[in-house]
Simulated assay, not measured.
Amino acid sequence: MDLSKPQYSLRRVGHPFTKDYQVYFERNADKIAVSPFHDIPLYHDEARNVFNMVVEVPRWTNAKFEISRGKSMNPITQDTLDGNPRFTRSCFPYKGYIWNYGALPQTWEDPHYTDPDTDAKGDNDPIDACEIGRAIAKTGDVKQVKILGVLGLLDEGETDWKLIVIDVTDPLADKLHDISDVEKHLPGLLDATRDWFRIYMVPNGYPPNDYALEGKFMDKAYALKVVKECSEAWRRLVHGKVEKGGISLHNTTLSGTPGKLDPKDVGLPADENLSPAPVPQELEEWFYVDRERLEDDKKLVHGDDSLCITLDLA
C-alpha cells in the first residue's frame, strides 16, 4: 500500500472564496479527468477497510467547499448561502472547522430512503467524514483513512451522517481502532464535535440541529454498515436505477453507466492557482452561542439571531 505518491492532481479555476472557484481532479497514472464523486474508488484497500476520503474543508478554516453534485465531473466548489459564497462562522471556542472535513467517494445518502434509525431521508450528498489526525490537509487532498465511528446528525430534518475517521499515516492511527479509543486518546474531541454540529448554523439565525440515536456516537461496526448502505445507494444512482434529480453522473471510468464519458472528450482547464479573494469581515468575529437557551429556543424562526453575541477581533 504505497501512500508516498499522490494519485491525483488538481486543476484550480478562478479565485478561491468566489462563486466561480472550481477544483477539478486528474488521475496521475493516465492523466485523465475523474469525478471525485464517482471515479475515485471508495476503497483504497478493501481487505484492510482503508477508505479514500476527499478533503473539502481543511481544519481551522471557514470556507464551505464541497463536491458539486450538479456540475459535470463534480468539481469542488464553494457552497452559497443567500446567493453569496458561504463561510461557516466561528462559534467560540472553535475557529472554523475543527477537523479536516470532507466526503467518501462512491457513496450517496439517498433522499428517497427513510432510514429506520433516524426516521429521516438522506441529504442527497456523499457521506461526510471528519478526519481527526494532526496534519492540516488542503482542499482536494485524497487521504487514506480508517473509520472509527459515526454520529447521526439531523440537519433540517434530513439524515446527515458524520463519520469519524483518521488518516492511516497519522502517528495515532495504530492506537485508534474504534470510537471508544478516540475518547481515550483524544479526550473531549467527541463532545466538541457533537457541540460543533449542534450550533454551527445558529449564527445564521437557524435553530440548533438535532441528533438521531440520542446523539450517541456509534461504533466502527455500525459506521461500516452505514457506509455500505450509502455505497449501495450510490451504485443504484450511478447505474440509473433511481431518480438522479440534479446530480451529474458524468464519469470516465465506470463502464456500463449512463454517465460514462470518453476521457478523450473531457478537457480540463489549465490549473490557474489564483490568489484568494478578500473574505467577509465577519470571519474576524467570534460568535458566542448561549447554549443554556438552546433547548428552550429550538423552535426559533429563521432569522432570529438573539442566541448569539458577537465580538469583532479585527
Results as ranks from 00 to 15, higher is better:
6 P>H: 15
10 L>I: 15
18 T>N: 10
25 F>D: 06
31 K>P: 01
31 K>A: 11
33 A>E: 02
33 A>M: 02
39 D>T: 10
45 D>S: 07
54 V>M: 08
54 V>A: 08
60 W>M: 02
62 N>G: 06
65 F>K: 08
67 I>R: 08
67 I>M: 14
76 I>T: 10
79 D>G: 12
82 D>T: 11
92 F>W: 12
92 F>Q: 00
92 F>H: 10
96 G>F: 12
97 Y>Q: 02
105 P>H: 06
107 T>Q: 08
112 H>W: 14
115 D>K: 09
116 P>I: 04
119 D>P: 00
129 A>G: 08
131 E>V: 11
137 A>Q: 09
140 G>C: 09
141 D>I: 07
146 K>Q: 14
147 I>S: 00
147 I>N: 02
148 L>N: 05
154 L>G: 00
158 E>G: 03
166 I>Q: 05
167 D>S: 08
173 A>L: 01
177 H>A: 05
181 D>V: 11
183 E>F: 02
184 K>P: 00
184 K>G: 02
186 L>D: 03
188 G>I: 02
196 W>T: 01
200 Y>C: 05
200 Y>L: 07
206 Y>G: 01
208 P>L: 10
212 A>Y: 02
219 D>F: 02
222 Y>W: 13
223 A>I: 05
223 A>T: 03
224 L>M: 14
224 L>Y: 12
226 V>W: 03
227 V>E: 09
229 E>L: 13
234 W>P: 03
235 R>N: 15
236 R>D: 15
240 G>E: 02
242 V>A: 02
251 N>R: 09
252 T>I: 08
258 P>H: 01
259 G>W: 12
259 G>F: 07
260 K>W: 04
262 D>L: 01
262 D>P: 02
264 K>I: 01
278 P>I: 04
279 V>N: 04
282 E>D: 15
284 E>N: 15
287 F>I: 08
290 D>M: 09
292 E>V: 05
297 D>Q: 13
300 L>T: 14
307 L>V: 05
308 C>R: 07
313 L>I: 06
314 A>E: 13
